[in-house]
């Protein structure tokens, strides 16, 4: 049984203590490794169990609730309010109607680890609120998550409105659909599609080392 399958079994039992004890066994790994190699496969496996008639949506929600706890605790290991007023800023949100925000949380956490100033808006943020927040806060990066195909048409709307922002933030798009569709065709202005967290982590490091322009290239 893979680590993802083991963790999925524990998440579905609903015990935050057992789930945390399991994660603690891998405390020699970085959060990045735990996110990509243990938690992501676990949540994918939970989805597969639903597809195979083995669990219900209520079970899935229970698993993601327990997973939320693990993520919050893992993130808190490195979380500290950035003292640097010039720290780059990143905001994260799910498109309207989207409830799946586990991936987005892991993404936001990686930015926080690298001392970015982060705002996490979570699930289901309508485009007008997202735009208002971005206008006021002026982030360098906006991360969007989309997991349900019926929400794809909205991706164009979101990616388009952000291009009118004076600061021209880099738009990142992630979520379950990145491996299933060519999301560039559903988005405006060529956003960066994130298919895995190692890739993202490297992108953040490049951004910080070489500056915004090189990171995009």
């Amino acid at each position: 049984m893979s680590k993802g399958e083991e963790l999925a079994g524990i998440l579905l039992k609903g015990s935050v203590t057992d789930a945390w004890d399991y994660i603690e066994k891998y405390n020699h790994l970085s959060n990045l490794e735990i996110y990509q190699d243990i938690i992501t496969p676990a949540m994918i496996y939970v989805g597969q169990l639903w597809e195979n008639f083995e669990i219900t949506v209520a079970d899935e929600h229970l698993a993601s609730g327990v997973c939320d706890f693990i993520l919050a605790r893992l993130a808190s290991k490195y979380k500290s309010k950035s003292e640097d007023h010039d720290a780059p800023k990143a905001m994260f949100l799910c498109l309207e109607g989207e409830q799946h925000n586990v991936g987005l949380k892991m993404t936001a956490s990686l930015f926080e680890e690298k001392k970015w100033d982060v705002k996490f808006f979570g699930a289901n943020l309508p485009v007008q609120y997202a735009l208002k927040a971005a206008k006021e806060w002026e982030p360098d990066v906006i991360g969007l998550s989309v997991s349900i195909a019926t929400h794809l048409p909205k991706l164009k709307e979101y990616t388009e409105v952000f291009t009118y922002l004076p600061k021209k933030p880099t738009i990142l798009v992630g979520g379950r659909l990145t491996s299933m569709y060519n999301l560039q065709t559903f988005a405006a202005n060529n956003p960066l599609i994130i298919t895995n967290l190692y890739e993202l982590n490297e992108w953040i490091s490049n951004y910080q080392m070489e500056g915004r322009t090189n990171a995009i290239n």
Partner: peptide, 28 residues
């Protein structure tokens, strides 16, 4: 339709998630 059956469960879960967001893990 199943949405209504799950509604209460989701609300409860949302409450817990909101509490989680306010948790000070250092204290925990």
């Amino acid at each position: 339709v199943k949405e209504k059956d799950n509604e209460r469960l989701f609300e409860k879960l949302q409450e817990l998630q909101n509490r989680l967001a306010a948790t000070d893990f250092e204290l925990y």
